[in-house]
């Protein structure tokens, strides 16, 4: 079976993550959706690495992981700060950006 199959799998995972971001109101769940999207992209990168027979794709995936780790730290810190200020982490609540 061709490694290309993993790319299709990555597409499915990515779309599930995106739908989660759109549909879930809990900020942590939406954030997990984002993480899933990042991982789907990683999977595609690794699959491409396998397809092309070069290791650069894996290195790129590694970088994505590092950046994602940093992003998770900051993102969760923001969620905690928001929770402290408003006692909720619902994404529908802070609608103060309404124009």
């Amino acid at each position: 079976m061709s490694p290309m199959a993993f790319v299709y799998l990555a597409v499915v995972l990515f779309v599930i993550g995106a739908a989660a971001v759109l549909l879930r109101r809990n900020a942590i769940v939406a954030f997990m959706g984002v993480e899933l999207m990042l991982n789907a992209a990683n999977l595609a990168l690794v699959a491409f690495s396998r397809i092309h027979g070069t290791i650069d794709g894996q290195v790129m995936a590694f970088f994505v992981m590092v950046v994602a780790a940093a992003e998770v730290v900051v993102g969760l810190a923001i969620i905690i700060a928001v929770f402290r200020a408003r006692q909720t982490i619902s994404l529908d609540e802070p609608a103060e950006l309404k124009g």
């Binding site: 971001v21 759109l22 549909l23 109101r25 939406a30 994404l91 529908d92 802070p94 609608a95 103060e96 950006l97 309404k98 124009g99």
Partner: peptide, 13 residues
Amino acid sequence: LRRFQSGQVRSYA
């Protein structure tokens, strides 16, 4: 255009 600025993060997403 203001209608798009609903303040709803998920709409932006």
